Computed example of a mutant assay.
Amino acid sequence: MLNIKDLKGVIPPIVTPVDAEENVDEQGLKNVIDYVLEGGVHGVFVLGSNGEFYAFDFENQKKAVEITVKHVNGRVPVYAGASAITTKECIKLAKMAEEVGADALTVLTPMFIQPNEEEMYHHFEAIAKATNLPVLLYNNPGKTTNNISVALLEKLAKIENIVGIKNTSLDFAQTIEYIRVTKDNPNFKVLSGSDYFIYATLAYGGVGCVAGTANVAPRLVADIYEKYMAGDYVAAMEAQYRLVPLRNTYNYGSFPVVMKDCLNLIGVNVGHPVKPIDHCSEEKLEALKKVLSELGLIK
């Protein structure tokens, strides 16, 4: 189980390779895990939005968590996504992740429906109470249309096993506020969920990032964190700037295909996205190659 002091650093929401039937591809998933661990990441998050969690039935979600836990084998903490529209389904996923041996849960706000703040509080409270695992909240209003307000976060942070939040929002002021209202709580941490703001989140007192780009450039993303923690702020900032062109490619295709396409291009074969999402166009793949080449990721 995750110790609060280990909630830090670079945690890639790993992509989920699939076979021809769009079921989890075990060898492909192990290859991705090996690649990011060799790149020096500090945790692995399976079944996030980059991992196409919404595309898999319960059996496939369980398989993905099992493979990840077994293959990571305690080298870094494993965060398992337990996100769904209903509280009941999230609890089912949370219990499964705990049984399978994940170290922590990551739970997104509900999608499609729009619960009010009280409903959202009870949703997360019920999930946290249903498990012994630490829970990392996941705010991604652009994708779910639901936002964890600062006032709501203050309340949620008081729940014993809710230990942090990752903010995937381009509203950086909100991340700052999350940090400000929880900074006196030693058992609660804030992480960047937008790869533009990794350095900035650390500067304000955040502890790391859940960065989709760390699927593809784990070493570079880890550099932002490692250099920052070593006090080499110039080098950390330089690494952050080097990462931005890769983050800028997200709109080259339909989310979340771009990181899969990048991995295929650099030789970590992860296959196809889950339909209806398709690969980037030939033109955009050429543009991706240029970005990857400038990062020294392909010859």
Rank of each mutant, 00 (worst) to 15 (best):
E154I: 14
R180Y: 10
T175N: 07
S192P: 12
K155R: 14
S149T: 05
K183Q: 12
T175M: 04
T144K: 02
I165S: 10
T145S: 15
G164C: 04
T175K: 06
G193V: 00
T145V: 13
E160M: 06
T145H: 15
K158I: 02
K155E: 00
N187R: 13
I159L: 11
I159K: 14
K183W: 06
Y178Q: 06
D184Q: 02
L153Y: 10
V190N: 00
K158Y: 06
S192N: 01
R180A: 14
A157W: 02
I148W: 05
A157R: 08
E160F: 14
T175C: 08
E177Y: 08
N187Y: 09
V190C: 11
L191S: 10
K183G: 03
E160T: 14
K183E: 07
S169P: 14
R180I: 09
L156C: 15
I176K: 14
E160P: 11
G193S: 07
K155P: 13
N185I: 02
L152D: 03
V150E: 01
F188A: 10
A173Q: 12
N187G: 05
T182E: 04
I162E: 15
V150S: 00
T175Q: 05
I159D: 08
R180K: 10
I159C: 03
T145Y: 15
V163W: 01
S149I: 04
A151L: 13
K158Q: 15
Y178S: 04
D184N: 09
F172M: 13
Q174H: 13
L152F: 13
A173C: 10
L170Y: 08
F188R: 02
L191H: 09
R180C: 10
L152N: 05
T182L: 08
E160S: 14
N185S: 13
D184W: 05
V181N: 01
K183M: 03
L191R: 01
